[in-house]
Amino acid sequence: MSKIVVVFHSGYGHTQRLAEAVAKGAGADLVAIDAEGSLPEAAWASLNAADAIIMGSPTYMGTVSWQFKKFADASSKAWFTQAWKDKVFAGFTNSASLNGDKLATLHALFTLAMQHGGVWVGTGMLPANTKAAQRDDINVLGSFAGAMAQTPADASPDEIPAGDLETARLFGQRVAEVTERFKR
C-alpha cells in the first residue's frame, strides 16, 4: 500500500472539503497548511516519507493562496536534498467563478512538482461536455491537469456541487492507482 499525503490550504473551508474527498479516494493522510502558511515538523516528515503528494489550494487572484506559496517556498529544503524526487504528484483547486483562472493555479502546482523532480498525474477523466450535461456531473468543468471545483462566493462548503466532490474523490482514487503502478 502506498503512502499518500494531501497537503492543502483552505481559506474558507471549500478547499478543505475537496481535500477530504481527494483523501477519501486516495486513502491518504491530510496535512493542512495553517492560516500563517506553516506546517508542523511532523507534517514535513510525513511529506518526505510519502510515495505521492497531492497538493491543493484555492485559486485567489489567478494563482495559489499566499499561505500555499509560503509552503511552496519552504519546500526548498526538500528540494536541496532532492527528498521528493520521483514522487508522484497531483493537484486540485476551487474558485468562485466557473473559470476563475483555476488552470493557472494547477500550473503553479505542476511547476512546483516538476521543480522537485516529481511525476505528475492528471484526472484521466473525460469531461461532461454534451448538451445533456448537468452541473452535478463528473468533471463538468472539463479539467485534465488536476481536479477543479467551483463554488459560488456566497455558498458554504456544504454547498459544493456533488459532481465536483465526486470528481475529487475519483481523482484521489486515480492518483492512488497510478502510485501503486509506479512503485512496481
Rank of each mutant, 00 (worst) to 15 (best):
K77E: 14
T111E: 13
A74F: 03
M148K: 07
A32N: 07
D86R: 14
W84D: 04
A23T: 13
G37I: 07
L98Y: 11
D137L: 08
M55C: 05
A145C: 12
T151C: 11
S76W: 09
T179F: 02
G27D: 10
S76C: 10
D137Q: 08
V140G: 04
D137C: 09
I160P: 04
V22G: 00
A35R: 15
A113I: 01
V5Y: 08
F71L: 07
R174N: 14
D101F: 13
L141Y: 08
A155L: 04
R17F: 04
D137Y: 03
F68Q: 02
E180M: 11
K70C: 08
L109P: 02
P152G: 04
L30R: 11
A35C: 02
D158T: 11
L112F: 10
K85H: 14
G163P: 00
K24M: 11
V64M: 03
L47W: 03
E180C: 09
M55R: 02
P161F: 10
F71E: 07
F92L: 12
P58W: 02
R174H: 10
H116F: 00
F89S: 07
G62V: 08
G163V: 00
A78K: 02
P152I: 01
L141R: 03
A45Y: 03
G122R: 01
T81P: 05
G146Y: 07
A176E: 01
F80P: 00
A168T: 03
R184E: 15
T15N: 10
E20R: 11
A45G: 13
K85P: 03
A42R: 13
A43G: 14
S46L: 13
D86E: 15
E166C: 04
G117P: 12
P152S: 05
R17G: 05
P127G: 10
I160R: 01
A155D: 09
G172D: 00
F182A: 08
T179R: 05
R181I: 13
V5T: 12
R174M: 09
L109I: 02
